[in-house]
Design a protein around this nucleic acid. Sequence first.
DNA 1: GTTAGCACTCGCACATAAAGGGTGCTAACA
DNA 2: TGTTAGCACCCTTTATGTGCGAGTGCTAAC
Lengths: 354, 354
Amino acid sequence: MDLTERKLKILQAIIADFVRTAEPVGSRTISRNYELGISPATIRNEMSDLEEMGYLTHPHTSSGRVPSEKAYRLYVNELMGKKELSESEKMVIAQKLYQNVNELDNLIERAAHVLSEITNLTAFALSPGKELDKLRYINLIPVDERTVVLMIVSESGKVSNTAVQLDRPVEDETLRILAKNMTYNYSGKTLSEALKMDIIKNFREDAEAMAMFRNNVMPGFLRTLEDMLNVNLYMDGLTNIFSIPEYNDIEKAKSFFEVLGRKEDIRQKLIARDDGMIITIGGENQDADLSECSVVTATYHVDGKLVGKLGVIGPTRMKYDEVTSVVEYLTDNISKAFMITGGEDTDDGKDRGD
Amino acid sequence: MDLTERKLKILQAIIADFVRTAEPVGSRTISRNYELGISPATIRNEMSDLEEMGYLTHPHTSSGRVPSEKAYRLYVNELMGKKELSESEKMVIAQKLYQNVNELDNLIERAAHVLSEITNLTAFALSPGKELDKLRYINLIPVDERTVVLMIVSESGKVSNTAVQLDRPVEDETLRILAKNMTYNYSGKTLSEALKMDIIKNFREDAEAMAMFRNNVMPGFLRTLEDMLNVNLYMDGLTNIFSIPEYNDIEKAKSFFEVLGRKEDIRQKLIARDDGMIITIGGENQDADLSECSVVTATYHVDGKLVGKLGVIGPTRMKYDEVTSVVEYLTDNISKAFMITGGEDTDDGKDRGD
DNA sequence: GTTAGCACTCGCACATAAAGGGTGCTAACA
DNA sequence: TGTTAGCACCCTTTATGTGCGAGTGCTAAC
């Protein structure tokens, strides 16, 4: 059987109606509300064909049709026009996005918030992957007799530090040597490389510095590196599911929250997704718990480095055109923001430790 | 009418039963399951009295009795025995608490998690209030030509820093002077005092340092102070409400999530609560949205300073004795942990800026 | 003061009925 | 041959009625 022009139009109408109302849509509804110039009976015949072809399903013998996943896939791939956001919409989004933002991780969190607010779905965002970020500068700053602060600065500009308690007082000079040594050894290495390096053997020269390092600084150093590598997952708009008819069932709501409560899982799954605008519909998601959901994600990045993700999760019946536009607009904005703040100075200052 | 011994016993039995089952409890149930040696009819008479006195209510003309808020209040104040945790329970809690903990804020977060897990309620925790924390040490560390890191260490041991972009290269010497100046001016001040001080006038001596400060460092300094003052709110076990019969209604669940979603509100309200073990029952909570909930909070602290809170929110029908025991045990543990890690060295190192 | 007995009240679960929206088929039509 | 009107039929939803069970309140007896 052929997917004629008319069948496509009818399919599209059914999808549009179902997305809006969440109710199975009947032939009369289509004929009334969409000006296709054909009668309900004809539409019924076409619907019957579409069902046979796998694009529609019947919840029950009577009652209207519901688009299948195959239909959504077709819609997303072929039928869906790109929805351009109006200038005023863009303004609103941008304004919300940059409200109260002063750090980049903050911006990511904010993006998830805005996204959930605009789409009325559950949104999430991954902070930039740090696998590609490199160490730039390490310092040990004495605070008092037995406390030093270990400071690590990465090329992306992230600063991280840990207070380290020493087992005995240490000369400033020793700290200086150690810091210089560490900067020399590690700058230019990615965080994960640094994490794997056999650190000890790089400190043969100065026995005291080496002992200091091994006993006091190393644990904090490793922990801080791990911490810097961590990709944060932000979620927002979880409660939006309560306004989705599909989740008016308490059991469904519960399982939804349970799935999304396992943040570590979610993070792994998001990280594993391909880059670019990716839409997975219903069963296309490996996870059985998500087999009634669609997930839309897109990546933001700065010249191929530092890639993070942004997306939503919602019922398969979602406004794919609108969602993709908003997600795209947001990732564009984030990428831009990273360009401005993050990418500037890549000259290193490894010799300026004082 | 008098609250006779027998009436109290009956009331206690009703509360115990209702807390366990969430079902209105009838006279037969009491006579069957609690050995009071009196017949259902007698119990009915007593119940009738208790209702008149305001301790019980009738959901409907038939069907058993439900404890009123007044009853819970009486129970909490007078009837409830202190439930001692067994050693093995304590072990389990302590073990869960210290799993994966390496920072103090982390411990607070963990405590909320454990608390929700043990009580099957929604738990929250406030990180230590920082109003009493004082600045100890400030430094400016050159990273490269135009980047310095502003580092602030507080007496409680919290380290915070911001990367600051300079409008022009600055001598290390200038940074050193400025950092020394700042440390001299601010150390010993509480964070909020420092935030309010007229900063500029303290830098008359050195024109260059002053200009540097005004143009580059000040914004980051203020922002970082604000950041350090922030009291974090952690919540855990939100989905536990799905296992509470009272919230089997989707509308109730929704409004619960909506109330707890307004984190800023929650935070303010928790901060505003008195110190010590505080139990507010139903309507005693000002907030209308919480009029069907009870809130239990307790404070942890280190010699009167650095006070934070820990607690749960759940249906008025909760195991007050168990909840208070667990909360108390956890706050004790947190206080202890702060003592070990936080309270040690209070000697300042203001002159060790390098 | 306590208890047994009994009529009465609700709420709940279940069955039954009616309504409404939709289909599928057939036959007529252009 | 594609389109349409008509109609029987299907299934869900909603309303209605009924019986049951748990529980009360009252009265009278102990």
